[in-house]
Amino acid sequence: MARFKSIRFRSVLLAASITLAVASPVSAQGGGQGGGSSGGGRPASSEPTETGERAQPPGSPSGADGSALGWGTVPSSAGDPENRFSAWLDSSMEGSRLASVRERLRTLAGPALRAGVPLDAFVSRVREAVAKGAPPVLVAEAIESDAAAWIWLAGILADGTWPPENAATDLYLAVATAFRNGLDTGAVSGLVSWARVSGSRTGKAVAALATASAISSEFGASGAGDVARIVAASRLKIGRYDDVAALAARAAASGIGADRFDSALAATLGAGGSLADLERALFR
Protein backbone atom coordinates (compact mmCIF):
# COMPACT_ATOMS: atom_id res chain seq x y z
CA MET A 1 0.00 0.00 0.00
CA ALA A 2 2.85 2.32 0.87
CA ARG A 3 4.45 1.54 -2.45
CA PHE A 4 1.19 2.24 -4.26
CA LYS A 5 0.86 5.60 -2.52
CA SER A 6 4.39 6.51 -3.41
CA ILE A 7 4.00 5.61 -7.05
CA ARG A 8 0.64 7.35 -7.27
CA PHE A 9 2.10 10.49 -5.70
CA ARG A 10 4.98 10.48 -8.16
CA SER A 11 2.55 9.98 -11.02
CA VAL A 12 0.50 12.96 -9.94
CA LEU A 13 3.64 15.06 -9.75
CA LEU A 14 4.71 13.90 -13.19
CA ALA A 15 1.29 14.64 -14.65
CA ALA A 16 1.29 18.08 -13.07
CA SER A 17 4.75 18.79 -14.44
CA ILE A 18 3.73 17.78 -17.94
CA THR A 19 0.57 19.89 -17.70
CA LEU A 20 2.57 22.91 -16.59
CA ALA A 21 5.18 22.38 -19.26
CA VAL A 22 2.52 22.27 -21.94
CA ALA A 23 0.50 25.12 -20.48
CA SER A 24 3.35 27.52 -19.80
CA PRO A 25 3.99 28.83 -23.28
CA VAL A 26 0.28 29.24 -23.87
CA SER A 27 -0.10 31.12 -20.63
CA ALA A 28 2.95 33.24 -21.31
CA GLN A 29 1.60 34.31 -24.65
CA GLY A 30 -1.78 35.18 -23.26
CA GLY A 31 -0.81 36.28 -19.79
CA GLY A 32 -1.62 39.78 -18.71
CA GLN A 33 -4.45 40.25 -21.15
CA GLY A 34 -6.97 39.84 -18.42
CA GLY A 35 -7.82 42.32 -15.78
CA GLY A 36 -9.43 44.87 -18.04
CA SER A 37 -6.42 45.86 -20.03
CA SER A 38 -7.04 49.31 -21.37
CA GLY A 39 -3.99 49.66 -23.51
CA GLY A 40 -0.95 47.64 -24.25
CA GLY A 41 -1.89 44.31 -22.70
CA ARG A 42 1.00 42.06 -21.98
CA PRO A 43 4.37 43.66 -22.54
CA ALA A 44 6.76 42.14 -24.97
CA SER A 45 9.73 40.47 -23.40
CA SER A 46 11.96 43.03 -21.79
CA GLU A 47 15.20 41.15 -21.68
CA PRO A 48 18.52 42.26 -23.07
CA THR A 49 19.47 41.01 -26.47
CA GLU A 50 22.67 39.15 -27.13
CA THR A 51 24.48 42.35 -27.96
CA GLY A 52 23.61 43.84 -24.62
CA GLU A 53 21.05 46.16 -26.13
CA ARG A 54 17.59 46.00 -24.74
CA ALA A 55 14.36 45.20 -26.48
CA GLN A 56 12.28 48.24 -27.30
CA PRO A 57 9.50 48.64 -24.77
CA PRO A 58 6.05 49.11 -26.24
CA GLY A 59 5.04 52.73 -26.39
CA SER A 60 8.59 53.98 -26.47
CA PRO A 61 8.87 57.21 -28.41
CA SER A 62 12.21 56.31 -29.93
CA GLY A 63 12.55 54.60 -33.24
CA ALA A 64 13.26 50.93 -33.52
CA ASP A 65 16.59 51.64 -35.11
CA GLY A 66 17.62 53.74 -32.15
CA SER A 67 18.25 56.71 -34.40
CA ALA A 68 15.66 59.03 -32.94
CA LEU A 69 16.28 60.93 -29.76
CA GLY A 70 14.51 59.32 -26.86
CA TRP A 71 14.34 56.35 -24.57
CA GLY A 72 16.01 53.41 -26.10
CA THR A 73 18.62 55.27 -28.09
CA VAL A 74 21.57 52.93 -27.91
CA PRO A 75 25.18 54.03 -28.06
CA SER A 76 26.93 53.02 -31.22
CA SER A 77 28.93 49.84 -30.99
CA ALA A 78 31.76 51.32 -33.01
CA GLY A 79 34.78 53.04 -31.52
CA ASP A 80 36.22 53.07 -28.04
CA PRO A 81 33.85 53.36 -25.06
CA GLU A 82 34.83 56.93 -24.25
CA ASN A 83 33.98 58.16 -27.74
CA ARG A 84 30.79 56.12 -27.82
CA PHE A 85 29.64 57.56 -24.51
CA SER A 86 30.51 61.04 -25.65
CA ALA A 87 28.66 60.60 -28.93
CA TRP A 88 25.66 59.18 -27.11
CA LEU A 89 25.54 62.16 -24.77
CA ASP A 90 25.65 64.47 -27.78
CA SER A 91 22.90 62.72 -29.70
CA SER A 92 20.47 61.35 -27.13
CA MET A 93 17.55 62.95 -25.37
CA GLU A 94 19.21 62.04 -22.07
CA GLY A 95 22.34 63.95 -23.01
CA SER A 96 20.24 66.87 -24.14
CA ARG A 97 18.49 67.07 -20.78
CA LEU A 98 21.83 66.97 -18.98
CA ALA A 99 23.47 69.57 -21.22
CA SER A 100 24.62 71.64 -18.23
CA VAL A 101 26.69 68.76 -16.81
CA ARG A 102 27.52 66.93 -20.02
CA GLU A 103 31.19 67.85 -19.91
CA ARG A 104 31.44 66.83 -16.28
CA LEU A 105 29.91 63.45 -17.12
CA ARG A 106 32.36 62.98 -19.97
CA THR A 107 35.28 63.84 -17.72
CA LEU A 108 34.30 61.57 -14.87
CA ALA A 109 33.43 58.66 -17.15
CA GLY A 110 36.75 58.70 -19.00
CA PRO A 111 39.00 57.12 -16.35
CA ALA A 112 36.34 54.56 -15.44
CA LEU A 113 35.77 53.48 -19.03
CA ARG A 114 39.50 53.23 -19.59
CA ALA A 115 39.74 51.05 -16.46
CA GLY A 116 37.26 48.60 -17.98
CA VAL A 117 33.96 49.75 -16.50
CA PRO A 118 31.18 48.73 -18.91
CA LEU A 119 29.71 51.61 -20.91
CA ASP A 120 26.23 50.17 -20.30
CA ALA A 121 26.60 50.86 -16.57
CA PHE A 122 26.94 54.59 -17.25
CA VAL A 123 24.16 54.61 -19.79
CA SER A 124 21.78 52.78 -17.47
CA ARG A 125 22.39 55.20 -14.61
CA VAL A 126 22.03 58.26 -16.83
CA ARG A 127 18.77 56.91 -18.24
CA GLU A 128 17.42 56.21 -14.76
CA ALA A 129 18.37 59.70 -13.57
CA VAL A 130 16.79 61.47 -16.51
CA ALA A 131 13.66 59.34 -16.37
CA LYS A 132 13.23 60.26 -12.73
CA GLY A 133 13.71 63.93 -13.49
CA ALA A 134 16.69 64.33 -11.15
CA PRO A 135 18.38 67.75 -11.26
CA PRO A 136 21.49 67.67 -13.48
CA VAL A 137 23.90 68.57 -10.68
CA LEU A 138 22.54 65.77 -8.51
CA VAL A 139 22.88 63.37 -11.45
CA ALA A 140 26.51 64.33 -11.93
CA GLU A 141 27.26 63.92 -8.23
CA ALA A 142 25.56 60.53 -8.05
CA ILE A 143 27.28 59.21 -11.15
CA GLU A 144 30.62 60.57 -9.99
CA SER A 145 30.17 58.56 -6.81
CA ASP A 146 29.19 55.49 -8.85
CA ALA A 147 32.23 55.95 -11.07
CA ALA A 148 34.55 55.94 -8.06
CA ALA A 149 32.99 52.68 -6.87
CA TRP A 150 33.29 51.20 -10.34
CA ILE A 151 36.95 52.11 -10.72
CA TRP A 152 37.64 50.37 -7.41
CA LEU A 153 35.67 47.33 -8.60
CA ALA A 154 37.47 47.26 -11.95
CA GLY A 155 40.71 47.08 -9.97
CA ILE A 156 39.74 43.97 -8.07
CA LEU A 157 38.32 42.33 -11.20
CA ALA A 158 41.36 43.19 -13.28
CA ASP A 159 42.50 39.59 -13.74
CA GLY A 160 39.42 39.03 -15.92
CA THR A 161 38.55 35.62 -14.49
CA TRP A 162 35.14 36.71 -13.20
CA PRO A 163 32.46 37.78 -13.99
CA PRO A 164 31.65 36.83 -17.60
CA GLU A 165 31.57 39.89 -19.82
CA ASN A 166 27.85 39.60 -20.57
CA ALA A 167 27.01 39.83 -16.87
CA ALA A 168 29.48 42.51 -15.85
CA THR A 169 27.13 45.48 -16.16
CA ASP A 170 24.69 43.99 -13.66
CA LEU A 171 27.51 43.46 -11.19
CA TYR A 172 28.81 47.00 -11.56
CA LEU A 173 25.36 48.47 -11.04
CA ALA A 174 24.76 46.25 -8.01
CA VAL A 175 28.07 47.26 -6.42
CA ALA A 176 27.30 50.96 -6.86
CA THR A 177 23.92 50.38 -5.21
CA ALA A 178 25.60 48.47 -2.41
CA PHE A 179 28.04 51.29 -1.61
CA ARG A 180 25.27 53.85 -1.84
CA ASN A 181 23.28 51.91 0.72
CA GLY A 182 26.01 51.42 3.28
CA LEU A 183 28.04 48.34 2.34
CA ASP A 184 31.79 48.77 2.53
CA THR A 185 34.64 47.57 0.37
CA GLY A 186 35.27 44.63 2.71
CA ALA A 187 31.75 43.30 2.20
CA VAL A 188 31.97 43.57 -1.58
CA SER A 189 35.49 42.19 -1.92
CA GLY A 190 34.51 39.28 0.35
CA LEU A 191 31.65 38.47 -1.99
CA VAL A 192 33.80 38.81 -5.09
CA SER A 193 36.49 36.55 -3.62
CA TRP A 194 33.91 33.93 -2.75
CA ALA A 195 32.29 34.13 -6.20
CA ARG A 196 35.63 33.83 -7.95
CA VAL A 197 36.72 30.80 -5.94
CA SER A 198 33.35 29.05 -6.06
CA GLY A 199 32.76 29.79 -9.74
CA SER A 200 29.36 31.13 -8.79
CA ARG A 201 26.94 32.50 -11.31
CA THR A 202 27.08 36.26 -11.46
CA GLY A 203 23.32 36.46 -10.99
CA LYS A 204 23.70 35.02 -7.52
CA ALA A 205 26.28 37.58 -6.47
CA VAL A 206 24.27 40.43 -7.99
CA ALA A 207 21.05 39.36 -6.27
CA ALA A 208 22.88 38.87 -2.98
CA LEU A 209 24.25 42.40 -3.26
CA ALA A 210 20.75 43.74 -3.91
CA THR A 211 19.50 41.92 -0.82
CA ALA A 212 22.39 43.12 1.30
CA SER A 213 21.82 46.68 0.06
CA ALA A 214 18.18 46.54 1.11
CA ILE A 215 19.12 45.08 4.50
CA SER A 216 21.82 47.68 5.04
CA SER A 217 19.35 50.38 4.09
CA GLU A 218 16.92 48.92 6.60
CA PHE A 219 19.37 48.80 9.50
CA GLY A 220 21.44 51.86 8.64
CA ALA A 221 25.02 52.13 7.50
CA SER A 222 26.37 49.71 10.09
CA GLY A 223 24.29 46.76 8.92
CA ALA A 224 24.83 43.97 6.44
CA GLY A 225 28.56 43.52 6.97
CA ASP A 226 28.84 40.01 5.57
CA VAL A 227 25.26 39.53 4.45
CA ALA A 228 25.96 39.46 0.71
CA ARG A 229 28.53 36.67 0.93
CA ILE A 230 26.47 34.61 3.38
CA VAL A 231 23.31 34.89 1.28
CA ALA A 232 25.13 34.11 -1.96
CA ALA A 233 26.88 31.10 -0.43
CA SER A 234 23.71 29.78 1.22
CA ARG A 235 21.56 27.08 -0.28
CA LEU A 236 18.75 29.54 -0.96
CA LYS A 237 17.61 30.01 -4.51
CA ILE A 238 17.79 33.55 -5.83
CA GLY A 239 14.02 33.74 -5.84
CA ARG A 240 14.04 33.48 -2.03
CA TYR A 241 16.52 36.28 -1.39
CA ASP A 242 13.74 38.83 -1.01
CA ASP A 243 12.42 36.71 1.85
CA VAL A 244 15.67 37.40 3.70
CA ALA A 245 15.12 41.12 3.18
CA ALA A 246 11.53 40.70 4.42
CA LEU A 247 12.79 39.03 7.59
CA ALA A 248 15.31 41.85 8.06
CA ALA A 249 12.55 44.43 7.74
CA ARG A 250 10.46 42.52 10.25
CA ALA A 251 13.43 42.24 12.59
CA ALA A 252 14.18 45.95 12.37
CA ALA A 253 10.53 46.76 13.06
CA SER A 254 10.72 44.52 16.12
CA GLY A 255 13.71 46.39 17.50
CA ILE A 256 16.30 43.80 16.57
CA GLY A 257 19.61 45.43 15.75
CA ALA A 258 21.97 44.87 12.84
CA ASP A 259 24.50 42.93 14.92
CA ARG A 260 21.93 40.42 16.12
CA PHE A 261 20.54 40.02 12.63
CA ASP A 262 24.03 39.46 11.20
CA SER A 263 24.90 36.85 13.81
CA ALA A 264 21.57 35.05 13.36
CA LEU A 265 22.12 35.03 9.61
CA ALA A 266 25.63 33.61 10.01
CA ALA A 267 24.42 30.94 12.44
CA THR A 268 21.57 29.80 10.21
CA LEU A 269 21.89 30.47 6.47
CA GLY A 270 25.65 30.70 6.87
CA ALA A 271 25.72 27.23 8.38
CA GLY A 272 23.55 25.54 5.78
CA GLY A 273 20.26 26.33 7.50
CA SER A 274 16.97 27.46 6.05
CA LEU A 275 14.85 30.59 6.09
CA ALA A 276 12.72 28.98 8.77
CA ASP A 277 15.85 28.55 10.90
CA LEU A 278 16.65 32.22 10.46
CA GLU A 279 13.13 33.20 11.39
CA ARG A 280 13.27 31.04 14.51
CA ALA A 281 16.63 32.49 15.47
CA LEU A 282 15.28 36.01 15.18
CA PHE A 283 11.83 35.72 16.67
CA ARG A 284 11.69 32.70 19.00
Binding site: G40, P43, S46, E47, R54, P57, P58, W71, A131
Partner: peptide
Protein backbone atom coordinates in the same frame (compact mmCIF):
# COMPACT_ATOMS: atom_id res chain seq x y z
CA UNK B 1 14.41 45.86 -17.60
CA UNK B 2 12.70 48.52 -19.73
CA UNK B 3 15.54 51.03 -19.64
CA UNK B 4 13.65 53.11 -17.07
CA UNK B 5 11.28 54.24 -19.78
CA UNK B 6 8.52 56.17 -18.00
CA UNK B 7 5.97 55.35 -20.66
CA UNK B 8 6.82 51.78 -21.49
CA UNK B 9 4.59 49.66 -19.28
CA UNK B 10 1.18 51.05 -18.45
Amino acid sequence: FNQWSPDGYE
